[in-house]
Each structure stands twice: as C-alpha cells, then as structure tokens.
C-alpha cells in the first residue's frame, strides 16, 4: 500500500492546526523507504529495544552475566579444540584472548541475526492488529543485543589486564567497527526477517547458516591464512574486517586491516540498503501472510 502524507490547512476555519491526509491505495512493485514516517515512530523503536532488553534475562538467576558466559565458554572450547589440539596459529597472542576478542563482535552478529530474523514472525499478532512501521521490529531486536555486546566487551578489559595486553591507538576506530557491525547484522536481519514471514524455512536453516558463517569468519583462525590475492574479495564479508579490526586495535596482532574494513563497510551498507528496499517491498504482505 502506498501512503501519501501531506499536510493541508484545515478548512473549517476554527482550527489553525494542519490536518494530515492519508491516502490509502493498492501498491505494486518497489515501494519508497518512508524515512519521515520512521522518524515519527522513533520512540517506538526505543520502546521495543527497551522491551527486548528488559525481558531477555527475566526470571534467570545469572541475569546479564549470561552475556559473558556464552562467549566465555565458547572461548574455552575453542582454546582447547583449536588452540591446544589443532594448534591453529593465533598471530602470536595467547589463543584464549585471540578468540575472545573475535567472539565479542561475532556473538553480537550471530545473536542479533537470529533474534531479528524471527522478530516479525514472533510479532505476527501485533502486525495483524495495529499499524506501525514494521521495520522497527527487526531493528529493535538488533539494537537490543548491543547491551550484551558492551557487557562482554567489559569482560575483555579484564582479560587484557590479566594477560598484560594494552590496546593500540587504533582502538579509537572501534566506533566505526561497531557501526559496520550493526549495519551488517541489521541489514542481514532485515533481509531474513522479511523472507521468513513468507518462508518459515529461514527459522530452520538459521542454526547451520550461522555455524557456516562463523567458520567462514576469522573467529577461530587469523585472516593471515587467507591467500593475499583473495584478501579483498574476502573483505566483502563485512565481519572479516570487523573481527580482524577488533584484534588489531585491541591486542595488536597485525597492522590495522584498513583495506578489509573499507571493503566490508561498503558491502555492509549495501546489504543494509538492499535489505531496506526488499523489506519495504514485502511489508504490504506481512499482515496477510505472517
């Protein structure tokens, strides 16, 4: 459906307030991304994010500690399996901190992707009963995971103290890396959430797709393993630059991989924007199909 919002002066003369006129008509093909409308509902994005944060660890004993426990235990498993047994190269730093540094952005990406891809289906009842820009749902799911991200980041500081590692000046670029990470996760999340309204296969495929994505990202192994001539192509996977950037800037394994970050930043933006277009095209069916 297309909605043309325009304001016209009230004609009854008593009120000087502008009256919104909504025109509802059938839509076809690509739809515009209604940024203005989204901004009107920015508070709703805030409330949904806040809801997702609030309810995440309700009625648990450990509460937000879970944000640390998950990557921590993965770190332990990886250190034993890949660090000890498989003796995978860790660019000269202890394997635990090598993998934990990667697990922080990775865990965010994986949980945000999983969470946002089901956001529309689990909000199906709401979608059928009230109108709001649907894009708010997957975005809120992604943003809510930032809390876990910051908590697990905090724990990295403790690990770094323990290993006596000081961050490099490149750590100042972390906000940029976080931005690319959020764009990449929410972009992919928008794509998958819109697809899963119609095709519930997404939910079932999610687990192994995330697994494959993890092993193809430099989480358990360093980017230095990638042959030089494929490096930039590999950089199209935005999480490659993000993860390697985290390592370089925080534990100084390699020089800052600006090339990967630049390529990854461009592709993350493309994923995000194409996701938006796809989402707004599919949006009109959500209430009928979800």
């Amino acid at each position: 459906m297309t909605i043309d919002d325009k304001s016209v002066g009230s004609t009854d003369g008593k009120s000087k307030r502008a009256v919104t006129v909504n025109v509802i008509k059938p839509a076809s093909g690509w739809a515009a991304i209604r940024l203005g409308e989204f901004l009107e509902y920015i508070e709703l994005l805030y409330f949904f994010t806040w809801r997702d944060i609030k309810i995440l660890y309700k009625q648990t004993i450990l509460g937000f500690t879970w944000a640390i426990i998950n990557p921590l235990f993965q770190m332990i498993v990886f250190s034993v399996v890949f660090g000890r047994l498989a003796r995978i190269d860790s660019d000269g730093v202890p394997y635990p901190i090598f993998s934990y540094t990667a697990l922080i952005p990775w865990t965010f990406f994986a949980t945000a992707l999983t969470f946002s891809s089901v956001s529309l289906v689990s909000g199906a009842n709401m979608i059928g009963k009230i109108y709001f820009p649907r894009i708010v749902l997957p975005l809120a799911s992604t943003l809510a995971k930032l809390v876990d991200f910051f908590i697990s980041f905090f724990f990295l500081a403790i690990l770094m103290l323990y290993y006596g590692i000081t961050p490099t000046w490149n750590a100042l670029a972390l906000p940029l890396l976080v931005l690319i990470m959020v764009f990449c996760a929410s972009g992919a999340g928008i794509w998958l959430s819109a697809l899963s309204v119609q095709y519930r296969d997404i939910k079932h495929a999610n687990h192994f797709v995330v697994q494959i994505l993890m092993y193809s990202a430099p989480v358990v192994w360093p980017v230095s393993k990638v042959p030089e001539q494929y490096r930039l192509v590999y950089g199209l996977y935005p999480m490659a630059g993000v993860i390697e950037g985290f390592r370089s800037s925080l534990i100084g394994t390699t020089p800052m991989p600006w090339d990967l970050i630049a390529v990854g930043g461009v592709s993350a933006t493309l994923i995000f924007i194409s996701g938006l277009f796809f989402f707004y095209r599919m949006e009109r069916y959500f209430a009928d199909v979800a």
């Binding site: 006129v21 509802i24 008509k25 009109r284």
Partner: peptide, 20 residues
C-alpha cells in the same frame, strides 16, 4: 484493517483526514 493501514486494499482507494 485497511483503513488503519494494517493491510492494503487490492483495488480502490480511501482518503482519511486526521490522525487515526
């Protein structure tokens, strides 16, 4: 549902003046 923009019409149009 159509008037509240939850779902779109297949044909036709509606115009609504005011916050709904």
């Amino acid at each position: 549902k159509i008037l509240s923009k939850i779902t779109g019409p297949t044909y036709g149009r509606a115009s609504i003046r005011g916050r709904i």
